[in-house]
């Protein structure tokens, strides 16, 4: 069962959002070695483990930044579970035989399991949005990418050599088209329901 109480380890999630170098270093010192040890014991090597760690941190950052992730369990177990699931998925994709050796130093609670699952669901949502975007026409891709960064619409118009008014209109049309395509995708409803 999940509880609503925020765990003191929320500080690590906040540190990722704030790009706090000191606490990011601390995550590397305190939590990453366990993940590397686990992956190395399960058909992996250190280089793959480091890639998984970076991906996991980025997913946590994305979720916290866009959905306001509130941690109700220790960061250690939550982070380990995310990395572990990512690694098992990678092994599955590559067709390797998976051998799961649990790390006994960690106590995985229901809370950690639930939170890691939600992060996984968030990641699936995010992947779907980006894959739909990648299938759109070049102009829409460009205008959405540029228009959603901090760049002003005037800069976007200048870069694409179109008028300001047209850039604004096109951005709105492209975003509307993108959201329609996302909503039409077969996986969307399930993923939206899972997360909300």
């Amino acid at each position: 069962m999940t509880t609503n109480k925020t765990h003191p380890d929320q500080q690590y999630v906040a540190a990722l959002v704030a790009n706090d170098h000191v606490l990011i270093d601390e995550i590397y010192l305190k939590f990453v070695p366990k993940v590397i040890a686990y992956i190395c014991k399960n058909n992996g090597d250190e280089a793959s483990a480091r890639d998984i760690v970076q991906e996991a941190l980025l997913t946590i950052y994305d979720q916290a930044k866009t959905k306001g992730l509130q941690l109700s369990c220790p960061f250690d177990a939550y982070f380990f579970l995310i990395c572990k699931r990512k690694w098992l998925n990678a092994l599955k994709k590559s067709g390797s035989k998976t051998v799961t050796i649990e790390d006994e130093r960690l106590s995985i609670t229901d809370d950690a399991d639930q939170q890691a699952l939600r992060t996984q669901q968030f990641e699936a949502q995010q992947k779907l949005y980006l894959s739909v975007l990648s299938e759109m026409g070049d102009i829409c891709k460009k205008i959405i990418t540029l228009g959603l960064t901090a760049a002003s619409m005037q800069e976007v118009a200048d870069q694409l050599d179109i008028t300001y008014a047209y850039a604004r209109k096109k951005k709105s049309l492209c975003i509307t088209k993108l959201t329609q395509l996302i909503k039409q995708s077969p996986q969307y409803r399930k993923l939206y329901k899972d997360y909300y």
Binding site: Y129, L148, A150
Partner: peptide
């Protein structure tokens, strides 16, 4: 919920985070 995910994806803050 869709807009925020995309906005974050292309933000400069995210680029800095990846670098850190």
């Amino acid at each position: 919920s869709i807009y925020k995910v995309l906005e974050n994806q292309f933000s400069e803050e995210r680029v800095s985070f990846v670098e850190s």
